[in-house]
Simulated assay, not measured.
Amino acid sequence: MAPHDAPEPARPAAPADLVDFSVDLTSHEVHRRAQVLAALGPDWDPIEALLGEDAAYDLLYGNLDAEQQRIHDELVAAGVLPARGGGRAAS
């Protein structure tokens, strides 16, 4: 077939040809949450997990020298790190 005889490419559907499509994922979300809680197990304690995260944060950002503290404070001011303990890293 010669290039001038080639068929025209298909055009996208006009907006009037669109079909309203919606999916309710509520039951899927409930199932997903149930699976997450089942994977965590009956011994999972959310308060203990949060306290562990706080302790890890204190270890990570504790005992900073002056330059490290300045950078930490800039990151807190920029919203990169959460403000804790009056905006200062743990000492």
Rank of each mutant, 00 (worst) to 15 (best):
A14R: 10
Y57H: 04
L25S: 12
E53C: 08
L50F: 11
G79F: 01
E74T: 04
L50D: 12
A90P: 00
A90T: 06
I47A: 14
D43H: 15
Y61S: 00
D24E: 10
L64Q: 03
A16R: 14
L75C: 03
E74P: 00
L40G: 05
A83N: 03
A16I: 10
A10S: 12
T26V: 10
G86H: 00
I47D: 15
E48I: 09
D58T: 05
A13W: 06
Q35G: 13
L59Q: 14
A56V: 02
R88W: 00
R84I: 01
G62Q: 02
W44C: 09
L25N: 12
L50Y: 09
G62A: 05
A83V: 03
D24F: 07
P82A: 04
H31L: 14
E74L: 13
R88C: 02
Q35Y: 08
L75H: 03
D65P: 01
S91M: 13
S27Q: 15
G86P: 02
R11M: 11
P9N: 04
A49S: 09
E67M: 10
V76M: 00
A39T: 11
P42V: 11
G87H: 01
A38D: 15
E29N: 11
L60I: 08
L51Q: 10
A2S: 14
Q69K: 09
A34R: 13
A6L: 15
D73M: 04
A77C: 05
L51I: 09
